[in-house]
Design a protein around this nucleic acid. Structure first.
Length: 356
DNA sequence: TCTGGGGTCCTAGGACCC
DNA sequence: TCTGGGGTCCTAGGACCC
Protein backbone atom coordinates (compact mmCIF):
# COMPACT_ATOMS: atom_id res chain seq x y z
CA UNK A 1 0.00 0.00 0.00
CA UNK A 2 1.10 3.49 -0.81
CA UNK A 3 1.37 6.04 2.00
CA UNK A 4 1.38 9.66 0.92
CA UNK A 5 1.51 12.75 3.10
CA UNK A 6 0.92 16.41 2.42
CA UNK A 7 2.80 18.77 4.69
CA UNK A 8 1.16 22.19 4.59
CA UNK A 9 2.41 25.13 6.67
CA UNK A 10 -0.21 26.90 8.79
CA UNK A 11 -0.84 30.59 7.95
CA UNK A 12 2.70 30.54 6.60
CA UNK A 13 3.56 34.19 5.88
CA UNK A 14 2.16 35.42 9.20
CA UNK A 15 3.84 32.54 11.04
CA UNK A 16 7.15 33.65 9.50
CA UNK A 17 6.52 37.23 10.63
CA UNK A 18 5.74 36.00 14.16
CA UNK A 19 9.25 34.58 14.37
CA UNK A 20 10.80 38.02 14.08
CA UNK A 21 7.89 40.04 15.54
CA UNK A 22 6.74 37.88 18.47
CA UNK A 23 4.57 40.77 19.69
CA UNK A 24 2.01 40.22 16.88
CA UNK A 25 1.24 36.70 18.11
CA UNK A 26 -1.62 37.84 20.31
CA UNK A 27 -3.06 40.25 17.73
CA UNK A 28 -5.08 39.81 14.57
CA UNK A 29 -2.36 40.02 11.94
CA UNK A 30 -2.49 40.24 8.18
CA UNK A 31 0.28 39.93 5.60
CA UNK A 32 -0.65 41.49 2.29
CA UNK A 33 -0.75 44.65 0.30
CA UNK A 34 -0.80 48.08 1.94
CA UNK A 35 -4.43 48.81 2.96
CA UNK A 36 -3.79 52.58 2.65
CA UNK A 37 -6.58 53.33 5.12
CA UNK A 38 -9.09 51.38 3.08
CA UNK A 39 -8.05 52.77 -0.31
CA UNK A 40 -5.42 50.13 -1.10
CA UNK A 41 -5.60 47.81 -4.11
CA UNK A 42 -4.71 44.21 -3.63
CA UNK A 43 -5.63 41.38 -1.35
CA UNK A 44 -4.92 39.60 1.92
CA UNK A 45 -2.20 37.03 1.33
CA UNK A 46 -2.38 35.31 4.72
CA UNK A 47 -3.80 36.11 8.13
CA UNK A 48 -3.58 34.40 11.48
CA UNK A 49 -6.47 32.68 13.23
CA UNK A 50 -7.19 35.70 15.41
CA UNK A 51 -7.84 37.75 12.26
CA UNK A 52 -10.04 34.99 10.86
CA UNK A 53 -12.38 35.50 13.81
CA UNK A 54 -13.29 38.86 12.29
CA UNK A 55 -14.21 37.25 8.97
CA UNK A 56 -10.91 38.02 7.29
CA UNK A 57 -9.44 35.39 4.96
CA UNK A 58 -6.78 35.08 2.31
CA UNK A 59 -7.72 36.34 -1.14
CA UNK A 60 -10.07 38.94 0.29
CA UNK A 61 -9.60 42.54 -0.95
CA UNK A 62 -7.38 44.31 1.56
CA UNK A 63 -9.82 47.25 1.62
CA UNK A 64 -12.55 44.91 2.82
CA UNK A 65 -10.28 43.48 5.53
CA UNK A 66 -9.57 47.04 6.63
CA UNK A 67 -13.27 47.75 6.99
CA UNK A 68 -13.70 44.61 9.12
CA UNK A 69 -10.72 45.29 11.38
CA UNK A 70 -8.94 48.61 10.85
CA UNK A 71 -6.79 48.18 13.98
CA UNK A 72 -5.39 44.78 12.99
CA UNK A 73 -1.64 44.56 12.38
CA UNK A 74 -0.96 44.93 8.63
CA UNK A 75 2.46 43.76 7.47
CA UNK A 76 3.95 44.06 3.96
CA UNK A 77 5.09 41.02 2.00
CA UNK A 78 8.70 39.91 2.28
CA UNK A 79 9.02 36.99 -0.14
CA UNK A 80 12.78 36.70 0.30
CA UNK A 81 12.30 36.00 3.99
CA UNK A 82 9.47 33.50 3.41
CA UNK A 83 11.52 31.67 0.80
CA UNK A 84 14.42 31.44 3.21
CA UNK A 85 12.16 29.91 5.86
CA UNK A 86 10.60 27.67 3.21
CA UNK A 87 14.02 26.25 2.31
CA UNK A 88 14.64 25.43 5.98
CA UNK A 89 11.28 23.67 6.26
CA UNK A 90 11.69 21.69 3.03
CA UNK A 91 15.13 20.51 4.05
CA UNK A 92 13.69 19.03 7.23
CA UNK A 93 10.73 17.43 5.44
CA UNK A 94 12.78 15.99 2.60
CA UNK A 95 14.97 14.05 5.02
CA UNK A 96 11.89 12.03 6.04
CA UNK A 97 10.78 11.16 2.51
CA UNK A 98 11.22 8.25 0.12
CA UNK A 99 10.07 10.65 -2.57
CA UNK A 100 9.62 14.42 -2.18
CA UNK A 101 7.67 16.93 -4.26
CA UNK A 102 7.42 20.59 -3.31
CA UNK A 103 4.21 22.08 -4.72
CA UNK A 104 4.43 25.64 -3.47
CA UNK A 105 6.38 27.77 -1.04
CA UNK A 106 4.54 26.23 1.90
CA UNK A 107 3.46 22.75 0.78
CA UNK A 108 5.09 19.46 -0.11
CA UNK A 109 3.96 15.92 -0.84
CA UNK A 110 6.04 13.03 0.39
CA UNK A 111 5.78 9.35 -0.39
CA UNK A 112 6.74 7.42 2.76
CA UNK A 113 5.54 3.94 1.70
CA UNK A 114 8.89 2.38 2.58
CA UNK A 115 9.60 4.39 5.73
CA UNK A 116 6.22 3.91 7.39
CA UNK A 117 4.54 0.53 7.35
CA UNK A 118 0.80 0.77 7.81
CA UNK A 119 -1.44 3.54 9.06
CA UNK A 120 -0.53 3.38 12.74
CA UNK A 121 3.13 3.82 12.02
CA UNK A 122 2.32 6.61 9.56
CA UNK A 123 0.55 8.65 12.22
CA UNK A 124 3.53 8.42 14.56
CA UNK A 125 5.86 9.25 11.70
CA UNK A 126 3.82 12.34 10.78
CA UNK A 127 3.88 13.56 14.36
CA UNK A 128 7.65 13.19 14.39
CA UNK A 129 7.92 15.24 11.19
CA UNK A 130 5.64 17.91 12.56
CA UNK A 131 7.60 18.17 15.81
CA UNK A 132 10.90 18.35 14.03
CA UNK A 133 9.67 21.09 11.66
CA UNK A 134 8.50 23.06 14.69
CA UNK A 135 11.72 22.46 16.60
CA UNK A 136 14.10 23.31 13.76
CA UNK A 137 12.21 26.22 12.19
CA UNK A 138 9.77 27.42 14.84
CA UNK A 139 6.91 27.07 12.36
CA UNK A 140 3.64 25.14 12.72
CA UNK A 141 2.31 22.83 10.04
CA UNK A 142 -0.48 20.36 9.40
CA UNK A 143 -0.09 16.94 7.85
CA UNK A 144 -2.62 14.92 5.88
CA UNK A 145 -2.08 11.18 5.41
CA UNK A 146 -3.71 8.85 2.92
CA UNK A 147 -3.00 6.49 0.04
CA UNK A 148 -2.83 9.12 -2.72
CA UNK A 149 -2.03 12.79 -3.19
CA UNK A 150 -5.62 13.91 -3.56
CA UNK A 151 -6.75 12.32 -0.31
CA UNK A 152 -3.63 13.43 1.58
CA UNK A 153 -4.49 16.95 0.52
CA UNK A 154 -8.15 16.64 1.52
CA UNK A 155 -7.17 15.09 4.86
CA UNK A 156 -4.71 17.89 5.56
CA UNK A 157 -7.39 20.51 5.00
CA UNK A 158 -9.59 18.77 7.57
CA UNK A 159 -6.75 18.60 10.10
CA UNK A 160 -5.89 22.31 10.08
CA UNK A 161 -4.51 24.02 12.04
CA UNK A 162 -1.62 22.27 13.71
CA UNK A 163 -3.04 18.81 13.08
CA UNK A 164 -2.24 15.34 11.81
CA UNK A 165 -5.17 13.76 10.00
CA UNK A 166 -5.41 10.31 8.50
CA UNK A 167 -8.03 9.22 5.99
CA UNK A 168 -7.76 5.53 5.16
CA UNK A 169 -8.43 4.33 1.65
CA UNK A 170 -11.65 2.62 2.75
CA UNK A 171 -12.83 5.80 4.49
CA UNK A 172 -12.28 8.12 1.55
CA UNK A 173 -15.75 8.02 -0.04
CA UNK A 174 -17.52 8.54 3.25
CA UNK A 175 -15.12 11.35 4.15
CA UNK A 176 -15.78 13.20 0.88
CA UNK A 177 -19.52 12.52 0.61
CA UNK A 178 -20.89 15.60 2.32
CA UNK A 179 -18.22 18.09 1.15
CA UNK A 180 -19.16 21.06 -0.99
CA UNK A 181 -18.29 20.65 -4.67
CA UNK A 182 -15.61 23.34 -4.58
CA UNK A 183 -13.97 21.78 -1.54
CA UNK A 184 -12.74 19.14 -3.97
CA UNK A 185 -9.32 19.84 -5.48
CA UNK A 186 -9.72 20.86 -9.13
CA UNK A 187 -13.22 22.27 -8.80
CA UNK A 188 -13.46 26.05 -8.66
CA UNK A 189 -16.23 28.58 -9.05
CA UNK A 190 -17.03 27.93 -12.72
CA UNK A 191 -17.09 24.16 -12.56
CA UNK A 192 -19.16 24.28 -9.39
CA UNK A 193 -21.75 26.48 -11.11
CA UNK A 194 -21.97 24.13 -14.08
CA UNK A 195 -22.27 21.07 -11.86
CA UNK A 196 -24.98 22.71 -9.80
CA UNK A 197 -26.88 23.57 -12.95
CA UNK A 198 -26.76 19.86 -13.76
CA UNK A 199 -28.34 19.11 -10.38
CA UNK A 200 -25.31 18.04 -8.34
CA UNK A 201 -24.98 19.54 -4.88
CA UNK A 202 -22.25 17.65 -3.04
CA UNK A 203 -19.13 15.63 -3.77
CA UNK A 204 -21.22 12.56 -2.94
CA UNK A 205 -23.60 13.45 -5.80
CA UNK A 206 -20.66 13.85 -8.17
CA UNK A 207 -19.24 10.50 -7.10
CA UNK A 208 -22.38 8.77 -8.38
CA UNK A 209 -22.83 10.99 -11.43
CA UNK A 210 -23.48 9.64 -14.91
CA UNK A 211 -20.07 9.41 -16.57
CA UNK A 212 -21.42 9.95 -20.08
CA UNK A 213 -23.17 13.13 -19.00
CA UNK A 214 -19.97 14.46 -17.41
CA UNK A 215 -18.02 13.47 -20.51
CA UNK A 216 -20.40 15.44 -22.76
CA UNK A 217 -20.17 18.54 -20.60
CA UNK A 218 -16.50 18.51 -19.57
CA UNK A 219 -14.66 16.00 -21.75
CA UNK A 220 -11.92 14.00 -20.05
CA UNK A 221 -11.85 16.51 -17.20
CA UNK A 222 -15.33 15.26 -16.29
CA UNK A 223 -14.07 11.72 -15.88
CA UNK A 224 -11.20 12.98 -13.78
CA UNK A 225 -13.31 14.94 -11.29
CA UNK A 226 -15.66 11.97 -10.93
CA UNK A 227 -12.64 9.88 -9.94
CA UNK A 228 -11.58 12.59 -7.51
CA UNK A 229 -15.06 12.57 -6.00
CA UNK A 230 -14.53 8.86 -5.34
CA UNK A 231 -11.20 9.55 -3.65
CA UNK A 232 -9.18 8.16 -6.55
CA UNK A 233 -5.99 9.74 -7.88
CA UNK A 234 -3.20 7.92 -9.68
CA UNK A 235 -0.71 10.80 -9.95
CA UNK A 236 2.73 10.14 -8.51
CA UNK A 237 4.90 12.16 -6.16
CA UNK A 238 7.20 13.75 -8.77
CA UNK A 239 10.76 14.34 -7.65
CA UNK A 240 12.24 16.27 -10.52
CA UNK A 241 10.30 19.42 -10.97
CA UNK A 242 11.33 21.89 -13.67
CA UNK A 243 10.00 25.41 -13.84
CA UNK A 244 7.95 26.03 -17.01
CA UNK A 245 7.67 29.80 -17.04
CA UNK A 246 8.90 32.89 -15.21
CA UNK A 247 6.90 36.10 -15.02
CA UNK A 248 6.31 39.37 -13.21
CA UNK A 249 3.22 41.51 -13.15
CA UNK A 250 2.13 44.73 -11.50
CA UNK A 251 -1.08 46.61 -10.88
CA UNK A 252 -0.88 50.39 -11.31
CA UNK A 253 -1.84 52.53 -8.33
CA UNK A 254 -4.36 54.18 -10.61
CA UNK A 255 -5.60 52.83 -13.94
CA UNK A 256 -3.76 54.63 -16.72
CA UNK A 257 -3.70 55.26 -20.46
CA UNK A 258 -0.23 56.80 -20.39
CA UNK A 259 1.96 54.83 -22.80
CA UNK A 260 5.21 55.94 -21.22
CA UNK A 261 4.13 54.84 -17.74
CA UNK A 262 3.20 51.44 -19.13
CA UNK A 263 6.41 51.04 -21.13
CA UNK A 264 8.47 51.94 -18.06
CA UNK A 265 6.64 49.25 -16.11
CA UNK A 266 7.31 46.70 -18.86
CA UNK A 267 11.02 47.55 -18.77
CA UNK A 268 11.18 47.19 -15.00
CA UNK A 269 9.30 43.87 -15.01
CA UNK A 270 11.43 42.56 -17.89
CA UNK A 271 14.61 43.32 -15.96
CA UNK A 272 13.32 41.36 -12.97
CA UNK A 273 12.33 38.44 -15.16
CA UNK A 274 15.78 38.39 -16.79
CA UNK A 275 17.46 38.44 -13.39
CA UNK A 276 15.63 35.28 -12.43
CA UNK A 277 16.14 33.62 -15.80
CA UNK A 278 19.88 34.23 -15.63
CA UNK A 279 20.32 33.20 -12.03
CA UNK A 280 18.57 29.92 -12.89
CA UNK A 281 20.87 29.50 -15.89
CA UNK A 282 17.98 29.37 -18.35
CA UNK A 283 17.09 30.70 -21.80
CA UNK A 284 13.61 31.38 -23.17
CA UNK A 285 11.88 31.18 -26.52
CA UNK A 286 8.39 32.58 -25.89
CA UNK A 287 7.52 36.06 -24.64
CA UNK A 288 4.03 36.81 -23.34
CA UNK A 289 2.57 40.16 -22.32
CA UNK A 290 -0.55 40.21 -20.17
CA UNK A 291 -2.85 43.21 -20.28
CA UNK A 292 -5.63 43.77 -17.80
CA UNK A 293 -7.88 46.73 -18.48
CA UNK A 294 -9.85 48.80 -15.98
CA UNK A 295 -12.98 46.78 -16.79
CA UNK A 296 -11.05 43.63 -15.78
CA UNK A 297 -10.98 42.11 -19.25
CA UNK A 298 -7.68 40.40 -19.93
CA UNK A 299 -5.60 39.86 -23.05
CA UNK A 300 -2.51 37.72 -23.50
CA UNK A 301 -0.23 38.39 -26.46
CA UNK A 302 2.68 36.10 -27.06
CA UNK A 303 5.35 35.48 -29.64
CA UNK A 304 8.10 32.95 -30.25
CA UNK A 305 11.53 34.41 -30.82
CA UNK A 306 15.08 33.17 -31.36
CA UNK A 307 16.11 31.49 -28.09
CA UNK A 308 17.69 34.05 -25.79
CA UNK A 309 18.49 35.26 -22.30
CA UNK A 310 19.17 38.83 -23.39
CA UNK A 311 17.25 41.64 -21.65
CA UNK A 312 17.09 43.64 -24.89
CA UNK A 313 15.26 40.79 -26.65
CA UNK A 314 12.73 40.60 -23.86
CA UNK A 315 12.20 44.35 -23.61
CA UNK A 316 11.92 45.00 -27.36
CA UNK A 317 9.49 42.13 -27.89
CA UNK A 318 7.30 42.80 -24.88
CA UNK A 319 7.10 46.55 -25.60
CA UNK A 320 6.30 45.77 -29.24
CA UNK A 321 3.54 43.30 -28.27
CA UNK A 322 2.04 45.96 -26.02
CA UNK A 323 2.25 48.75 -28.62
CA UNK A 324 0.91 46.57 -31.40
CA UNK A 325 -1.98 44.84 -29.66
CA UNK A 326 -3.24 46.93 -26.74
CA UNK A 327 -6.34 49.06 -26.92
CA UNK A 328 -4.94 52.54 -26.19
CA UNK A 329 -8.39 54.01 -25.63
CA UNK A 330 -8.97 51.81 -22.58
CA UNK A 331 -7.61 52.36 -19.09
CA UNK A 332 -4.94 49.85 -18.16
CA UNK A 333 -5.09 48.30 -14.70
CA UNK A 334 -2.30 45.76 -14.76
CA UNK A 335 0.59 44.74 -16.97
CA UNK A 336 2.62 41.54 -16.91
CA UNK A 337 5.62 40.03 -18.68
CA UNK A 338 6.33 36.28 -18.79
CA UNK A 339 8.81 34.03 -20.56
CA UNK A 340 8.32 30.35 -21.27
CA UNK A 341 9.68 27.41 -23.27
CA UNK A 342 12.68 27.43 -20.97
CA UNK A 343 15.88 25.47 -21.53
CA UNK A 344 19.17 25.29 -19.67
CA UNK A 345 21.53 27.87 -21.15
CA UNK A 346 24.36 25.43 -21.85
CA UNK A 347 24.92 21.73 -21.57
CA UNK A 348 22.01 19.31 -21.59
CA UNK A 349 19.07 19.79 -23.91
CA UNK A 350 15.49 19.88 -22.84
CA UNK A 351 13.90 16.43 -22.72
CA UNK A 352 12.56 15.47 -26.12
CA UNK A 353 14.62 17.99 -27.99
CA UNK A 354 17.08 16.71 -30.59
CA UNK A 355 20.44 18.11 -31.50
CA UNK A 356 20.71 19.10 -35.15
C1' DT B 1 -16.77 43.69 -1.60
C1' DC B 2 -14.16 44.80 -5.60
C1' DT B 3 -11.08 41.92 -6.89
C1' DG B 4 -2.66 40.45 -6.42
C1' DG B 5 0.98 37.94 -8.15
C1' DG B 6 3.09 33.66 -8.77
C1' DG B 7 2.27 29.70 -11.40
C1' DT B 8 0.24 25.02 -14.03
C1' DC B 9 -2.48 22.40 -17.28
C1' DC B 10 -5.76 21.85 -20.97
C1' DT B 11 -8.14 22.81 -25.35
C1' DA B 12 -8.58 24.26 -29.92
C1' DG B 13 -7.89 26.16 -34.47
C1' DG B 14 -4.80 27.35 -38.14
C1' DA B 15 -0.30 27.04 -40.56
C1' DC B 16 2.69 24.08 -42.43
C1' DC B 17 4.95 19.71 -43.68
C1' DC B 18 5.06 14.97 -45.43
C1' DT C 1 -9.94 18.26 -60.16
C1' DC C 2 -10.59 17.49 -55.69
C1' DT C 3 -9.00 15.98 -51.50
C1' DG C 4 -6.49 11.92 -46.88
C1' DG C 5 -4.40 11.50 -42.56
C1' DG C 6 -0.76 12.27 -39.31
C1' DG C 7 2.18 15.23 -36.96
C1' DT C 8 4.22 19.54 -34.93
C1' DC C 9 4.39 24.31 -33.90
C1' DC C 10 2.23 28.60 -32.78
C1' DT C 11 -1.08 31.49 -30.49
C1' DA C 12 -5.11 32.59 -27.45
C1' DG C 13 -7.89 31.79 -23.77
C1' DG C 14 -10.05 29.41 -19.78
C1' DA C 15 -9.92 27.35 -15.34
C1' DC C 16 -7.67 26.36 -11.36
C1' DC C 17 -4.36 26.46 -7.32
C1' DC C 18 -1.59 28.73 -3.52
Amino acid sequence: MQIIMLIDMDYFFVACEELRHPEVKDKPTIVGFDPKHGEGRGVVMTCNYLARKFGIKSGMPISQAYRLKPDAVYLPLDYDFYEEKSREVMKVVKAFADRFEQVSVDEAFIDVSKKAKGYDEAIGYAKTIKDEVKEKTGLPCSIGISTNKLMAKMACEAGKPDGVKLVKEEEAKEFLKSKELDDLYGIGKKTKEKLEAMGYRTVGDLAKANTMELMEKFGSFGVEIRKYANGMDESKVEENYEVKSIGRETTFEKDTTDTQTIINAIKRLSAEVIDEVKSAGLTFKVVTVKLRYGDFTERLKSRSIRRSDDPDDLISNSVDLYLRYSNKAKLMRKIGVRVSDLTKARGQKKIGEFTR
